[in-house]
Write a protein that binds this DNA or RNA. Structure first.
Lengths: 205, 205
DNA sequence: TGTATTTTAATACCCACGTATGGGATAGGG
DNA sequence: CCCTATCCCATACGTGGGTATTAAAATACA
């Protein structure tokens, strides 16, 4: 048998290269040749692990979504597990952390956000590319809604709130603030302050 | 002197063609040749009115921004002019209308939103393209904040709100909902319902 | 050590894009 | 009527992109 390499690892390595290029120059400028150079391999090697660019992009978007989701899930886990009230931090401060994970506050998250935005633009034309992201989005929404409901029962958030709508509102707001930051009309500090303000307004008196 | 053509009109015509193509297939697929066909002219004619594609895109983004802003400004004008309380509709319902103007609820607004998103992605690389949009954004934010303050004084909105933050929150939320709709995770009806819910939560008891 | 098979590299292909060019059509002013 | 500047078109060029092809290198197992 011949040389055996970990395909998944290689694909991750290539996806990370795409992420770095995108962070610097945008996804449009991520050509297969540039990707190869950034990954330190040849064009042929890239082709070996991805049959087409479309397949590569599909992997990149899935990988990026997983990265973001994983960080948030880690936060959920740290909150106290399967829904009991044993968490050590408040729901409000957790949601603030969640927001900071989603907003483009550093180079890494800026690159991720750029990938996500770029695929958002292509979503209408190529729905198959973004399917995994839609799942992640639904999952996140449900979890946030659950969390809000639980915090209401615990007396941390106002009882008259509609958990489902508040979840949509909060996540949409974070998404919008992320766009604002990328666009250059809002700086990260202002964005986080707005999140803090919004969450304070949801807190029980 | 030779034939005289209204340049501005022609450029608008071409920009509208780009808008239609973008609405159907995305800005990436708006090639100069396709644009010429869609506008019913030749490639040479397009080149005659725009020296380069970059110049064309700059015009398209400015044109699109103006279209959106114009519709919202018309709404502000109808509200009662320079800030007096003579408006005939409530601030709440006006903000709802504003949201419906900004959300991609029909083909026209979907196309506009696609253009805006596409340029948002390029903003980091080509800030000069999006400069006019940033102005419009600042203007809109200030106006909404003013409006909220005024509505508080009129007793329509809760007095404890921070007008500036609420303006940021509301506009970010609308932007996020727009992204959700384009992405396919939210339908227009849900989005408008969330806007309505959010605005209700701002209303005085 | 041989060998089969994966991995890597080099390079050729073809197409679509933005741009450049040259000429022809059009029409207002002398 | 003609001339000149504008407008428009057809077509050519060069580049860069994804893809395809081919062969060399590397390596685990017999």
């Amino acid at each position: 048998m011949p040389k055996k390499v970990d395909h998944d690892e290689r694909r991750r390595h290539i996806a990370e290269a795409v992420l770095r290029i995108t962070g610097r120059h945008g996804l449009d400028h991520a050509t297969l040749r540039d990707i190869a150079v950034e990954a330190g391999i040849s064009l042929g090697a890239v082709q070996h692990y991805f049959r087409s660019k479309d397949e590569l992009l599909q992997h990149v978007i899935a990988h990026t979504g997983e990265q973001v989701t994983a960080r948030i899930m880690a936060g959920f886990a740290g909150l106290g597990g399967t829904g009991d009230t044993g968490g050590t931090i408040s729901v409000g401060s957790f949601l603030r952390v969640m927001a900071s994970e989603m907003l483009p506050l550093d180079a890494r998250r800026r690159a991720e956000r750029r990938v996500l935005q770029a695929f958002g633009v292509r979503a209408a034309d190529a729905p198959h590319l973004t399917e995994p992201l839609r799942e992640g989005n639904d999952w996140l929404h449900d979890r946030v809604a659950e969390l809000i409901g639980q915090a209401q029962r615990d007396g941390e958030l106002r009882p008259e709130l509609h958990a489902g709508h508040e979840s949509i509102t909060l996540l949409a707001m974070i998404e919008g603030l992320a766009s604002d930051i990328m666009f250059g009309v809002r700086d990260p500090g202002q964005a986080m302050e707005s999140v803090r303000y919004h969450l304070d307004r949801l807190a029980a008196r």
